[in-house]
Structure formats: structure tokens, C-alpha cells
Design a protein around this nucleic acid. Structure first.
Lengths: 148, 148
DNA sequence: TTAGATGCAAAGACTTTGCGCACTT
DNA sequence: AAGTGCGCAAAGTCTTTGCATCTAA
């Protein structure tokens, strides 16, 4: 169910091919950008960076590719509150803490949600998708300073 | 910090007035609709229902009013995955479980998140906003049936 | 009276889709 | 050669904003 995280560009593209899809300049570039990105990137960020490397790739193509990569289990996306979704390679599963004040996001290991996941399973029959956990609140820094 | 949940239309409107805002037909109608709504409503739902009662209220006004009510602590909204945000009166704090398959949402009492909230506070200095917890996964019904 | 609230219409942010040509396989 | 993938432009969804008018207090 969980695809192992491909670590290299070649592994990534191999997954694309074995998924019956073709490898193109646009896909190679999106893959490269995602590999070079630490943390999350909004589609817009990916688009800009892709264009820096391959100016002719269109925005819609990037959306389509992100979608395809997600179907293949190579990429996950999450909605962190309002605004655009963020994407990143499917690496170690983790959740997100989003600050209401400064909008910073912190990644936390999924182990933190183990107990909760068990309880939800037991009490509600609900299987938590740890890839997509996004919790809002106030981060440590903003809790200290009274101003925004 | 937490405003107590007003239970009647009059209490609700009293909050509006004491917040220095004016009470209008549009606001009264939005309040009425929210009070009549069980569960969550997307802005669009609120708009339709308001229009059923007061046809001349415009969509932008409803958005503005929901915003104002939220400023006053009367309403909370949450983003459940992609798509439109959902709104509801600030009642007992609860979280949401959103099914990836059928998109049903289940409310769960915030007590379920107590342990997690404590851990996040301790480990990350992060203060969880229990009003906005929205977790995605697969609900009990969809876990059983193989089809979507 | 008078500042806040509203309606309308237009703009804006984000994402998806249709179509015909290009490129991968 | 065959058919997937692409660029472009247009449409779609959800939400915000500017401005002239209206209205609650």
C-alpha cells in the first residue's frame, strides 16, 4: 500500500515508466524540482522552479504531472488551511502543524499520531491517513510574542 | 478567550451589537439559518438558505457576515480537504473526520485530542486549535465496501 | 445625521479541461 | 506508427473587493 520513497531521480522516473506512463522533459523537470525542494511547495512554487529549468513547461502540465505522481504514490499533497495545496515527495510519513498567526508549518513524525489513530479506529472505525494530517494552532514563537 | 456559545437568536444578535456592529436583516437571516443548520454548511449552502428567506441578500454579504461573526467568535469555519470551507456556530468544540472516499464528515468531541494536544504542547510548544481539527482518512463504511 | 452595511459586478486566487500538435515508445 | 502527453487558452470554483447607495442607530 505504501510505496517506498524513491530517493533518486532515476528511481522516480522508473516508477513513472513502470506505471505505464511516459517519461518526458516536463516530468523529469518536475521530479528534479521536487527532489531539490526541502519541505513543502505550493503548485505555484513548483511551477516557477520548473520554468526556471524548462521555460516552456506550462502550468497546467505541472498540475497534471503532480496529479499523476500522486496517483503513482510518489507525491502527496495536503491542504494547510486556506489557500493553495502543498506538495512534496512521499517520504517518511509525517503530519503538519500550521501556525494560525505566522503560517509557519512544522513537520512532526507520524508516531505522534499513533495513539490518536488507534483511538479513532477503535471508537469510530476511522482509519487515519497520516499523510494528510494538518493541524492548526499557534506555534511556540507566536505564543511568546504578543504581536502578529 | 472562548466566547460561550449563544443559544438563541437574540443572544447571538446581542453579541453583534455589543461588538459595536449593527444588526440588519441580512445578519438576522444568516444567524437564523446557522441556528437551523445541524452540522456544517458551506458558504454556498448558507447563501441558498438565506436567499430562501430573504431573496435580496447577496452572496458577498453572506461572506462578509460569516467573516464578521467569526471575528466575534460566534462562528468557526474549517477547511475539510479541498473545496469550499464549512461554517458552523461556535458550539461545543469538536474536530472533524473526513472520509477520503465518500467525503462524509464525522464530528468527534475535542476530548479525543486532549492527549495529542498535550504532547504537541510539550514537544513542540504548539498550541492546538481544537476548533479546526480536520483529519482525513477512510470511514468505517467505506473501509468495508470495496467500491467507492 | 452619519458611519457602517449592502448589492452589484468585476476581479482574484487556485485549479481543471478541451483541443490539436508534438514527442515518447 | 500509435497514442500518450503537451501548450495554450478558456472555463470553473470559491472568495474578495470597489464603489455608489441605503439604513440602523
Amino acid at each position: 500500500m505504501n510505496s517506498p520513497a524513491p530517493l533518486s531521480l532515476d528511481e522516480l522516473l522508473a516508477h513513472v515508466r513502470s506505471g505505464g506512463r511516459r517519461v518526458t522533459v516536463a516530468k523529469r523537470t518536475v521530479a528534479r524540482v521536487l527532489l531539490a525542494t526541502t519541505g513543502h511547495a505550493r503548485a505555484d512554487d513548483v511551477i516557477s522552479e520548473v520554468r526556471a529549468l524548462a521555460p516552456d513547461v506550462s502550468a497546467s502540465t505541472v498540475y497534471r504531472i503532480l496529479d499523476e505522481f500522486e496517483d503513482l504514490g510518489l507525491v502527496v499533497h495536503a491542504h494547510l488551511g486556506s489557500g493553495a495545496a502543498v506538495y512534496h515527495l512521499a517520504g517518511p510519513v509525517h503530519g503538519h502543524l500550521v501556525c494560525n498567526v505566522c503560517h509557519a508549518t512544522t513537520e512532526v513524525p507520524s508516531a505522534v499520531f499513533d495513539a490518536l489513530a488507534q483511538e479513532l479506529q477503535r471508537e469510530y472505525g476511522f482509519t487515519l491517513d497520516r499523510h494528510h494530517v494538518a493541524l492548526s494552532g499557534v506555534c511556540a514563537a507566536c505564543a511568546k510574542s504578543p504581536m502578529a
